[in-house]
Amino acid sequence: MSENPPRTELMGSSEFTNHHLGRTLEVRNLVKSFKVGSESFGKAERIKAVDDVSLFVPAGTTMGLVGESGSGKSTIARLICRLLEPDSGQVLVDGDEVTAGTKIPKGYARKVQIVFQDPTASLNPRWKVRRLVAEGIRVHGLRSRSETKERVAELVSLVGLPEHALDRYPHEFSGGQRQRIAIARALAVEPEVLVLDEPVSALDVSVQAQILVLLQELQAASGLTYLLIAHDLAVVERFCDEVAVIESGRIVEAGDPEIIHSRPEHPYTKALVEAHPVPDPHERTMYVHAQDKAEVAE
C-alpha cells in the first residue's frame, strides 16, 4: 500500500466512533436544468430535470422516490450528494446548508453518502476490498492506521461478508456481494444520510431481498436516514416511511406509502400502480386475459 501514504492521523476520538445518529435531510426548492441540443444549429434549449423539488426526511426514516426513467430521480440524488451543482435551491443536512453557488462545507461529503445501482461500475476493479472500504476513512482522516484496519474488518462483517473477502477483488464477488461492499464503503465514513440510487434493481430477486433486509437492519441499529430511489413500487411501498412520486422533475404526489396501493390520487401515480405487474395470476389485468374474462362473463 505504499502508493497511498497514510493521512495525518488525528482521529480516533470518540466523536466519530460511537456517535452514529442519523440526522434529518431537507431539500428546499431544488432546480436543475440541462442544455439539450447544439447552439450552432439553433436548437439549443434548456430542459428542467429537477423543477422546484422540496423534501423533508426525518432522522432515522426512509423516504422513497419513485418515478420512471428520465423523471429526474437520479438527478436529485446527485444534487443532494453535490455530484452536480443545482441552478438554485438548498440541501440541508445536520445543520450544514448547501446552497447553489456556494462552497460545500467541509465534511459534507462525509455526512452524505451514495450507493449506486451498479456496483460493478462503482467499485475500482484494481483495488482489493480492504482498500476500497478503507479509502473514505483515509481521505477524511477519520482513524489511525491500526484503527482503520480494525474498522474495515468490522464493516465487512457488518454487511455480511466473510473475513477472507478483504483480500479479494470486486470481480471475485457476485452482484449482491458487490453491493454489500459498496454499502460497507458508504458506511465507512460514518455518514448521517445514505442516498440509495436504485440499489437493488440490478440484482436478482432473491438477492434484492437480502440487500433490502440488510439496509433495514443497519437503519434499525444506527438510525441512519435513507433516501431510496427506485422504480419498483412494491419495494418502495414495503421499505419506506414516506413516498414521493416524481414525474418530469416535479413531485406530483407525496405522503404515506398507502398512496401507492390504496389511495393514489394523481393520474401518474395511478398509471404506475396499474402498470405494476402483480405477482399473482388471480389478479390478472393484461388485455388478453381481460378479454377472456369478458367472454366468460358473456
Binding site: G175, V207, Q208, A209, Q210, V213, E237, R238, V278
Partner: peptide, 23 residues
C-alpha cells in the same frame, strides 16, 4: 416457494424473506 417469498408485494404486510447465498 423461496423465490415467491422473497418478493415484496404491494399492500401485503407479510415480511419478505431473502434466500441466503447467491446463484
Amino acid at each position: 416457494k423461496a423465490l415467491l417469498q422473497s418478493m415484496p408485494r404491494i399492500g401485503e404486510d407479510v415480511p419478505f424473506v431473502p434466500i441466503p447465498g447467491s446463484a
